[in-house]
Design a protein around this nucleic acid. Sequence first.
DNA 1: ACATTTTATGTACTGAGTACATATTTGGAT
DNA 2: ATCCAAATATGTACTCAGTACATAAAATGT
Lengths: 218, 218
Amino acid sequence: MSTPPDRRTRKRLATRLGISNIATRLFLDRGFDNVTVDEIAPAADGGRMTVFNHFPRKEDMFFDRDEELRQLLRATLLQRDPGVAPIEALRLLAHRLVEEQSPYVRFSTASQGFVKTIEASETLKARARAIRDEIAQVVADALAESTGKKAVDADARLAASLLLATWTVALIHGHQTFRQKRNAGEARAAFLAVIDKGTAGLTVALAGTAYIRAATVP
Amino acid sequence: MSTPPDRRTRKRLATRLGISNIATRLFLDRGFDNVTVDEIAPAADGGRMTVFNHFPRKEDMFFDRDEELRQLLRATLLQRDPGVAPIEALRLLAHRLVEEQSPYVRFSTASQGFVKTIEASETLKARARAIRDEIAQVVADALAESTGKKAVDADARLAASLLLATWTVALIHGHQTFRQKRNAGEARAAFLAVIDKGTAGLTVALAGTAYIRAATVP
DNA sequence: ACATTTTATGTACTGAGTACATATTTGGAT
DNA sequence: ATCCAAATATGTACTCAGTACATAAAATGT
């Protein structure tokens, strides 16, 4: 699925990763808005246009993993056990990611740095919201598809939006708990508590729709 | 509550409104990104710096009513009948706004223009999302306050986020229905259907929390 | 080694937003 | 009316992200 890197693509990806790493380091250290592209380029040992070649927007250097997450959610919904409802599949995913210490649900001093950097920049917050909406769209599509609907309807959109809202609040709560208790275990528990509570709630809330039943494409 | 306009403020507000009106007209006609501030200023018979004086961001000229909506929601939650649960109060508000033909829930060819203009611009979409998040924050605060909590906790945040997600999807669905059927009545019905369905769902979903009971500050 | 395609990078421009200075207007005081 | 102080309008000059377009420097296949 992702193992055909000839030399060209390897080099390209290396350049890209180099820029992204250097830039992210700078953003974390000094704040997104206090780092200019004209600084990043030489720091990454390249030209300014090379940066824009790989990253059309400055934020793209910071958010360089969102496509992965989209794929993960899509795959989770579409390739789930037919006996498991979509909502439940996502709940299980949350638990699995926590167990695997996935970067998406990590609560640590390092991740706090990311959170703080995002919170400090309107641009980064905007991009984070955009990603959230894009993911909601992906989930809505996957929900509709996995329950055999032709197009995304209001039900699918609502279910997806409610799910994403739950995840977002769960993440916020996890990070807040970590900030207060300085304890990753408690933070993970707090995150999962919101996920579980939200899932339980949504399960009854959406009982009339297909997204809590274990329906699959016929 | 809002009637102390001496001449100075009156003039200031007039200038502000003039700029906002002209700018919005231009945005609707030609698209947000195809209108420059250097065009708006002379069109509004003023200097470029005057525009930035009143509107720090270009988007502010387009979204010039969001504070009203925040106030409306806050007031609805805080000044509601003690016998009515917060969630129900918001449902009733939705019905009332529809009945009053409030601009916030209007479905017309004119409002389609606004929607299309927003959809066509990444900047405007970003701002719309930001406003949504700010409103969720306001609702979370009001929920916490109206149920006598000292600070916003995960429950309040979750309830507010779920509510806002429901409203957003309801609005999208209303607009989509209008676009397809070209019928304001059907669009309003579609909007309210999502609101009612969502409210019913959230009522059972959040049954454990205080936001569906009719609790008020002691 | 050569031609072709990709990738890296330079130059010059546009347009939003900011810092700072200046003018103009307004409300109130004499 | 006249003058003063605060608020408001506007000009000048700058920074920085992002774009259009051109060119150089690999890399790949023949």
